[in-house]
Amino acid sequence: MQVNAMEKKRIQSVVMLIVLLAFTYGAMVITQYNVVEGFVSIPKAFVWGITSFYPTASSFENLPGILMQLGRTVLTSVAATTIAAVFALFFSLFGSKVTKVNNVLSVVSRGTATVFRNIDVAAWALILLFSFGQSALTGYFALFFVSFGFLTRAFIETLDEVGASSIEALRATGASYPAIIIQAILPSSTPQMMSWILFMVEMNIRSATLVGILTGTGIGFEFDLYYKSLDYNTASLVVISIVVVILALEYASNYVRRVVL
């Protein structure tokens, strides 16, 4: 029996591999992608990056403007994440199996989180362009909706992990629903929730660059402007600034998780 099960699993793996290779080959044929040319172009792209895509002394004259736009992008990402976290907390309380009020609200909360989470931030930006145009508000709402969906789902899973024993003990003493949330749920789940919020801030700063290109705002627009004007030296300075800020924020968030949480 065990030999037959292992043989069946091996056959299934081979079949899945064949199907994957077939899909890959079909995609290459449809898109007319040449694998050899793709690999040959990698060294050429690397050489071009070394010889053309680097900051110069003249490009540093634009650094104050770059840092100002980068600061706006970071603040927008933080604002979108924190406000989304507040809304996500309320929806997660209704959606969690531990804290749900009734099954209808639980299904609605989980369904809302799924819809908002599975629509990509670029798609949200394109959808919102029709309503708000190319403005900072478009980028803010795009980041807000994605953050809301992701954090609601993450908070629901966090609340579901909370032990039911303390909740049942408070219910046995006649504690009200708000008292149970404040005294049992939030103290035990807050550290994990804070960790998710910090993670979402990092993700939003990365996504804000793409959103800025689509909405014509922030550091993404700054990069797009220099790149399309063939000012590759300043464009590279924008990229380096983004990388430095992301690494610094990641280090700071890891420090907070390790020391504070």
Rank of each mutant, 00 (worst) to 15 (best):
L159A: 08
Q69W: 04
D231R: 05
S253I: 02
G139P: 06
L137M: 06
M193N: 03
M1I: 11
V211T: 02
S135M: 06
I119D: 01
I66Q: 01
S229G: 11
Y25D: 11
A252Q: 12
W196K: 08
T76V: 14
I11Y: 02
N204R: 04
Q69L: 08
V101M: 14
K9P: 00
I181G: 01
R117H: 09
D224R: 09
P64E: 02
Y232K: 01
G38N: 14
M193Q: 05
V244Y: 11
F144K: 03
V115D: 09
T173A: 10
T190M: 15
L126I: 15
T51V: 06
N102M: 05
A5Y: 05
I181V: 13
T73N: 02
F91D: 00
I66R: 01
W124S: 00
Q134T: 15
L105R: 01
T173I: 13
S165F: 12
F223C: 05
V162A: 07
F148N: 00
G216M: 06
P43S: 02
E168P: 07
F148D: 00
Y251N: 15
S229V: 06
T24L: 15
V107R: 09
D231C: 03
T81S: 13
F145L: 13
S166W: 04
S165N: 12
G26L: 10
L105N: 12
S77K: 02
G139F: 00
L105T: 03
Y54F: 13
F90A: 10
P178M: 08
E157L: 05
N118R: 07
L70I: 05
T138A: 08
F94M: 11
E7G: 10
